[in-house]
Design a binder for these strands. Structure first.
Lengths: 333, 333
DNA sequence: CAGCGGGCCGAAAAGGTTTTCAAGAACGGC
DNA sequence: GCCGTTCTTGAAAACCTTTTCGGCCCGCTG
C-alpha cells in the first residue's frame, strides 16, 4: 500500500498526470468534477506524494537538521521539542543528529545533512558557552543555547545574567538581606553570568553577598551540601541562598533540613533550571528559574523559517527567563 | 557552495555524467586515470551528491522515522541515542517525531514520514504497557519499550519481571530476609511485573514480603517517603527495601536518614531505572537496576535494518536488565 | 459567419542521479 | 588482414512530481 504513484492515480481517474497533479494541489485550472474524480482515485489508492520527487523540483526538501552536541543533557530536549513543534509536521520534518560533543562527528553529520539537502540547520550546544561557528554554509543556520563565535551568525541564548538578577530580586522582595550564592563550575560562562546578575542586583540594594563571595564549585548535590555546611559555619545568620542549579539547591535543602533550619521561614532557597524531577519533589518544592528553553526552540524554528524565506538575521538575541515560585521561598514577615 | 551537480563535475572533468557517477561510486568499469580526474573535479567543486535524487532512483531514502510518544520522558532518549548510534550517520539519518501521546498527532506524523519515503520506523512508547499497533505499513516497523498489541509486529521490551527478580536476588545475597517493596502506579504493567519478579524470587527462598504486601502508590519521592513511614511503623524490623523507581528510592532514603536508620548497614535500599541524577547524587549513592535502554535502541536499529533487507521478524523480544551496585546495599555481616 | 477569448486538459521539460546497453577503440590470435 | 575480446566511455531511460505552454472546444461578439 501507499506505493501508488501519481501515474496510477491519473490512470484510474482517466486523466493525465499533469491534471492529476493540479487537481490534488488545488490548482484552479481544472474542472470541479474532474478534481473530484482524481481525489477519489487518490484516496482509493491511498496515494501519498513522493516528497523526494517534490523536493527535487521545488528545490526545497522540507527538512531541517537539528545538530545537538549532547542529547542526554536535559537542555537540548526542550529546545528540540519547541523547534519540532514550531515546524508543523506537515510542512517540515527534522533530522536529529547527536554529535556527542565530538567535532569530527559533527563534521560528519553536517556533510550528511547537506547532502540530504536540508533547508536549514539548528545547532544546539551542550553548555551555554560560545562555540565555534560552522562557517559559511549553503543553508541558513541558527545557533541556540550556545552562541556562535562569529557575530555574522544568528545566535539565540538565555539571559543568565537576568536570571541571576531575577533570583536575587525575588529574595530581596521576600525581605531577605543576607543572601548567599552557591553555584557550579566557574569555567561555565553561565555560572559567571548568573553570579554577576546576582551581585549587580545586590549592589543596587546596597547589599553584599552573605559569606563574602560567590561559592563556585561543581554542579552537584554533593557540592551543594558541602558548601552549605561551610556557609552555615562561616555565616550562620544567612537568610537566603541562591543556588546556581536545582541539583545544588537539593543539596542545600538537604543540609538545612538536617540542621533543622526551616525553609522558607528562616532561610529561603531558590534554584535554577526548573528541572522538574528535582524541583517539584524536593522538600519543600523549590522556587526556581525556568530557562524557557522550549520557547527558545520555537523562536529558533521561526528565525530559521524566516531565513529560509530570505530574511536572515545575525547577532545574538537574548531571551528572558522566568521565575517559578514554589514553597522554598516566602516573605520573611 | 556545495550546490554543484554531477553535471558540473562531469563537465569540469571532461567526461559524461554517466562516467562521473561511476567514477565516484567506485564502479570498476572506468580507467584509473579518468577516475582520478573526476574525483579531483568533485573535490574542487566540493560536490556532494543530492540524496533526494539518489533516493528517487534506488527506492531507498536512507532515512528512518523515530516516532516517540513522550520525548521529555527520560526513556525515549537513551533508546533514541542507541538507535541513532547504530545507524552510522553516513548511511541512515533519522527523522524525529514526538506525538506527545496524542493519537491523531501520531497519525499525522506517520503520514508525513511515509510520504518522505522513510525506509523503516521505530516506535517508542511512553510507558512500557502494550500499545495499539500501527497496522500494516509499506515499511518495516520495530516497536521498542512499549510492545505492540499485534503479535505479527516485532516488539523489543525490557525484562521488568527479571528486574524485580534481580533486585531481590541481590538483597538476598546481601543476607537480607525482611524485604519490602514500595513501588508506583499499579496500573503500569511495569509495576506489576517488577513486583511479580520480586515476589517470585522471595518465594523461591521461602520468604514473603516484609509489610505483608506490595506497596503500590505513585512514581514520586513523596510516595516513597510516605510509604516508608508507614512501613517502618508497621514493620520496624525491615532490613531491605526494594523501590520500584529511583524517585521512590530517594524518598525512601530521605525518611531513613531522617529516622537515623543507617543505609546500608541496617536497611539496604535498591532502586530501579538508574536515573543518574537521582541515583548518583543520593546519600548514599543508590544501587539500582539499569534498563539498558541504549542497548535496546541499538538492537531496534539492527532489527530494522535486517527487516529492510528482507529478513523481518515478529513477536516480542525481551532484553535483560543490569544490576548497578553502589553504596546503598551491602552484605549484612 | 469569422474571430476571439476563456475554460479545461495533456505533452513535455525539468530536477539530479543511477544503470543499462551500445558503440568505439585497442589488441591478440588465427 | 579479419574476427572476436576486452576495456572504456557515453547516450538514454528511469525514478516521481511540478509547471509551462500549446491545443482543443465552446460560446460569445461583432
Amino acid at each position: 500500500m501507499s506505493r501508488a504513484t501519481l501515474r496510477d492515480v491519473a490512470k484510474l481517474a482517466g486523466v493525465s498526470v499533469a491534471t492529476a497533479s493540479k487537481a490534488l494541489n488545488g490548482q484552479p485550472q481544472v474542472r470541479a468534477e474532474t478534481r473530484e474524480r482524481v481525489i477519489r482515485a487518490a484516496e482509493q489508492l491511498s496515494f501519498s506524494p513522493n516528497t523526494l520527487a517534490q523536493g527535487l523540483i521545488t528545490q526545497r526538501s522540507g527538512t531541517v537538521g537539528l545538530l545537538t552536541s549532547d542529547l542526554e543533557g536535559r537542555f537540548s530536549i526542550p529546545i528540540l521539542m519547541g523547534a519540532e513543534d514550531a515546524f508543523g509536521s506537515d510542512q517540515t520534518s527534522v533530522f536529529l543528529c547527536d554529535a556527542r560533543g565530538d567535532t569530527i562527528r559533527e563534521k560528519h553529520h553536517l556533510r550528511a545533512l547537506l547532502s540530504r539537502r536540508v533547508d536549514g540547520l539548528i545547532v544546539v550546544g551542550a553548555r551555554p558557552d560560545t562555540r565555534p561557528s560552522l562557517g559559511d554554509l549553503p543553508v541558513p543556520v541558527v545557533y541556540a543555547y550556545a552562541p556562535s563565535d562569529d557575530p555574522a551568525d544568528l545566535s539565540l541564548i538565555t539571559d543568565n545574567t537576568g536570571g541571576g538578577r531575577t533570583a536575587v530580586d525575588h529574595l530581596i522582595r521576600c525581605g531577605r538581606r543576607r543572601i548567599a550564592h552557591i553555584t557550579g563550575d566557574p569555567s561555565y560562562s553561565a555560572a559567571q553570568d548568573r553570579a554577576r546578575g546576582a551581585v549587580d542586583r545586590l549592589t543596587e540594594e546596597g547589599l553584599t553577598l552573605a559569606g563574602g563571595e560567590v561559592w563556585f564549585g561543581m554542579w552537584s548535590e554533593a557540592w551543594g551540601r558541602g558548601a552549605t555546611r561551610m556557609l552555615l559555619d562561616r555565616c550562620p545568620e544567612v537568610d537566603a541562598i541562591f543556588a546556581g542549579s536545582d541539583e545544588i539547591a537539593r543539596g542545600v535543602l538537604d543540609v538545612l533540613h538536617e540542621e533543622r533550619i526551616d525553609v522558607p521561614s528562616r532561610v529561603a532557597v531558590i534554584g535554577f533550571d526548573n528541572w522538574s524531577v528535582l524541583a517539584v519533589n524536593s522538600r519543600p518544592p523549590l522556587t526556581t528559574i525556568d530557562l524557557n528553553l522550549e520557547h527558545l526552540g520555537r523562536i529558533a524554528a521561526q528565525r530559521l523559517s524566516a531565513a529560509m524565506d530570505g530574511t536572515a538575521a545575525s547577532g545574538v538575541e537574548t531571551f528572558p527567563v522566568r521565575l517559578i515560585t514554589r514553597e522554598s521561598t516566602a516573605p520573611l514577615r
